[in-house]
């Protein structure tokens, strides 16, 4: 179990590192695949099978493909400013490390409530009940949000013929 966790965590962190540090935006986009897949593995390890499938469908099948489309639509692949930096490396690294140190202290010092683990069992029944029970209003609002996003994206990115 520990080995599986270390494997998925390594895939996730290394891919996320390539995404964050690569100078080439295309490498970043493809490294994102490893990060999303590794996170999906972590979800399976944590008995969240349905969320893992949603992660693979929505993130890898949807968002990642969309991102790669956008990368290839907006730049020549060999363009000069494929990926240039805004804040310098050093200030960004310092900010990140300070924030990380604070959060690491918080994680290690807090006595987390741990009541024991969820059993490895299918979760779709419970999630479906939650969506149509306690969470029915956010669930319906989510569909409106997605419809608005769909229409908005079409309106924004449409090639208007201005004559």
């Amino acid at each position: 179990m520990r080995m599986i966790f270390v494997l998925f965590a390594a895939v996730t962190v290394i891919s996320a590192g390539v995404t964050a540090f690569s100078r080439n935006i295309v490498h970043s986009a493809f490294a994102l695949l490893g990060a999303f897949a590794g996170v999906a593995g972590i979800y399976v390890l944590l008995a969240a099978d349905f969320v893992a499938m949603v992660q693979i469908f929505v993130y890898i099948g949807g968002i990642l493909v969309l991102t790669i489309f956008a990368v290839m639509l907006t730049q020549g692949l060999t363009g000069v400013n494929v990926s240039n930096r805004a804040v310098g490396r050093i200030p960004a690294l310092a900010t990140t490390l300070i924030a990380g140190a604070v959060m690491l202290c918080a994680i290690l010092k807090t006595p987390w409530y741990a009541a024991g683990a969820r059993s490895i069992a299918p979760t779709t029944y419970g999630i479906g009940n939650a969506f149509l029970g306690a969470y029915v209003l956010p669930f319906e609002l989510a569909s409106i949000v997605l419809l608005a996003a769909l229409i908005g994206a079409i309106v924004i990115s449409r090639q208007e013929s201005r004559e």
């Binding site: 995404t19 994102l32 991102t67 400013n81 990926s83 930096r85 805004a86 960004a92």
Partner: peptide, 25 residues
């Protein structure tokens, strides 16, 4: 770790798509 890499990605990119990738992380 994933969060910090995402924050670093958002801070250092000038490419808008790179910033979106950081947000996804």
């Amino acid at each position: 770790a994933v969060f910090l890499l995402g924050v670093y990605c958002v801070l250092t990119r000038r490419n808008a798509i790179g910033i979106l990738m950081g947000i996804e992380l």
